[in-house]
Design a protein around this nucleic acid. Structure first.
Length: 573
DNA sequence: GCACTCACTTAGAATTGATCAG
DNA sequence: CTGATCAATTCTAAGTGAGTGC
């Protein structure tokens, strides 16, 4: 545990501690690291692995071959059948070809990557079949790499780095309907890399024969390494692990801001309800948008450059086509039906009864507009956040998500925890509370491919256990009967215990089945990691005598070390 | 106001590793 | 011991929001 002392100081010092040590935006005083680990160089295919064009064997130049292997490795994926993907890939691939290749290879549909694909599958298989010793050797090599490059020194602490390996080249896979899917993500070279470290540290040397793009000493940022990526032109960073002081402190601050919102949220809610009546259109739009952000935990919804990314929206960027108004629906009045793609192209679908004023305002906002027009045409995230800043220092749209997620967990835990339950049942309650939050935040996942099968397996286990229980009960009965005749109480006791044990096992399985079924399309981890004040969970564990390991795995315990140290059983969010 | 850059958090999928039943 | 299964970890895309300069 490289960080034990941080946690202690961090807890006692609270915010003051940070301010004392780091005036205005200074993030560290000393930073030393070994630089990034680059992707392994391309290894050309063995001679016997062939690429075919138009039915004929064709030997590709190394550069063209490398890009071809990226496609071959994805051949089984649905991606490679999509027109945009193929078009983007082919265009970028041709840029890597020699002029002869370019003149020969003119159509992707005439390219046959199946042999290459088979080769890679065989490679994967071979890796699985490797002997223990070979696997051990790879493991040791990885550990060596981690030991050498996976840590840095920030101020007086050795800290784990999150992503010290540079992203290898490959084909870009956006989420959803991304216009750039299939484009070539180029190989990052030392000449692309900016190193950030302190002046008095040992600057990491670039690989032999290479130079860094730049070495800078900027202690107002937290990153160690950066480079510009070629698909969107955005900057990528190497930063510290969530267990680090700098990340933990920020995380803690985030929840403290959300707790400050708790204190003034009633006032803010009254305010926006008043604003629904404002004479100013901008104010009304702002107030309705804020209502959605608060009630439905929608994201802010920054503008995006059209055609550069998938068409997704958040609250401020909702368009008329994303909502339907139902004056009455299924016996409820003033229902708004939301249907849009949010972050990561995850669909948000919800039918929500709203207050009459909200409904009337929405009708007004939609008047004389086309489906593709902005719903809140007088509003954007910057206007909204400026307003929020006036309501509370440090308040932004995303704080509502954090606040509502955490307060929901706390309420749900109070409501769902049954003091008489055993530990597995209590954990089911915890997961249900967590699930309520995940549903609120719309954290979905694709149902696991093997979901049905795994449910069936579990069910047959339950059936077997039930039979076992019936048997055990029969045995107990006959033991009781025997005992009457022969006064053998010992046998009865042991049978009783057996029945109890099996009952417990059965109940555990049934709880597991319920949990899994309810979790089919819901991802708990995102809310657990990013939205739920960990002190709520720590306090709950302490209160009910649940070992923290049942709630947080090792990585999560490292990330939340500050909270585990800090929170007592009576902690209130 | 607006376009653009930068730094940082949040996100689901893919891959890897640990565990368990047969 | 071995393969199936599930949990953990890794990966990197996709958001938020502040700041800058016109």
């Amino acid at each position: 545990m490289p960080n034990a002392s941080f946690t202690k100081r961090f807890c006692r010092g609270a915010l003051r501690w940070e301010e004392e040590r780091y005036p205005e935006g200074i993030k560290w005083k000393f930073l030393e690291h070994k630089g990034p680990v680059f992707a392994p160089p391309y290894e050309p295919l063995p001679e016997n692995v062939k690429f075919y064009y138009d039915g004929k064997v064709m030997k590709l130049s190394t550069k063209a071959e490398e890009v071809a292997t990226f496609f071959a490795k994805m051949l089984d994926h649905e991606y490679t059948t999509k027109e945009i993907f193929r078009k983007n890939f082919f265009k970028d691939w041709r840029k890597e070809m020699t002029s002869e290749e370019k003149s020969t290879i003119t159509s992707l549909s005439k390219c046959d990557f199946t042999h290459m694909s088979q080769y890679f599958k065989a490679q994967t298989e071979a890796r699985k079949q490797m002997s223990k010793e070979e696997k051990q050797k790879i493991k040791e090599e990885n550990e060596r790499l981690l030991k050498e490059y996976g840590y840095c020194v920030m101020d007086n602490h050795k800290e784990r780095i999150a992503n010290f390996k540079i992203e290898p080249p490959g084909l870009f896979r956006g989420r959803g309907n991304h216009p750039k899917m299939g484009m070539l993500k180029r190989r990052i070279m030392p000449e692309d890399i900016i190193i950030n470290c302190s002046k008095d540290s040992k600057v990491p040397p670039p690989p032999p024969g290479h130079k860094w793009k730049e070495v800078r000493h900027d202690n107002k940022v937290t990153w160690l390494v950066s480079w510009t990526e070629n698909i969107q032109g955005s900057i990528k960073y190497i930063m510290l692990n969530p267990s680090s002081r700098i990340k933990g402190e920020k995380d803690w601050q985030k929840y403290e801001t959300a707790r400050r919102l708790k204190k003034c949220v009633d006032k803010i809610r009254n305010q926006y309800r008043e604003d629904w009546k404002s004479k100013e259109m901008k104010v009304r739009q702002r107030a309705v948008a804020l209502y959605f952000i608060d009630k439905l935990a929608l994201r802010a919804g920054n503008e995006k450059e059209e055609g550069e990314t998938a068409d997704t929206v958040g609250c401020c960027s909702l368009r008329v086509e994303h909502i339907k108004l139902h004056p009455e629906l299924d016996g409820q009045e003033y229902v708004v039906e939301f249907d849009f793609l949010g972050k990561d192209s995850i669909r948000y679908y919800n039918k929500v009864p709203v207050e009459k004023r909200v409904f009337k305002n929405l009708q007004l906002f939609m008047e004389n507009k086309q489906p593709e027009d902005d719903l809140f045409d007088r509003l954007n995230t910057s206007i909204l956040n400026k307003h929020l800043q006036d309501l509370m220092e440090g308040l932004t749209a995303k704080v509502f998500r954090t606040y509502n997620a955490s307060i929901t967990l706390q309420q749900q835990l109070k409501e769902l925890t049954n003091p008489d339950d055993n530990i597995p049942a209590k954990i089911l309650s915890y997961n249900r509370a967590n699930r309520a939050v995940a549903i609120l935040c719309n954290h979905q996942r694709a149902p696991p491919k093997t979901f049905e099968k795994s449910m069936m397996n579990l069910q047959s286990k339950i059936d077997a256990k039930k039979e076992q229980l019936a048997d055990a009960r029969r045995e107990l009965k006959s033991a009781k009967a025997d005992a009457k005749v022969r006064r053998d109480e010992k046998a009865v006791e042991s049978k009783k215990k057996a029945v109890q044990r099996i009952e417990e096992q059965l109940m555990k399985l049934e709880v597991q089945a319920t949990d899994r079924e309810e979790n089919k399309q819901i991802a708990l981890s995102t809310s657990k990691l990013n939205y739920l004040d960990p002190r709520i969970s720590v306090a709950w564990c302490k209160k009910w005598g649940i070992p923290i390991e049942k709630i947080y795995n090792k990585t999560q315990r490292e990330k939340f070390a500050w909270a585990i140290d800090m929170a007592e059983e009576d902690y209130e969010f």
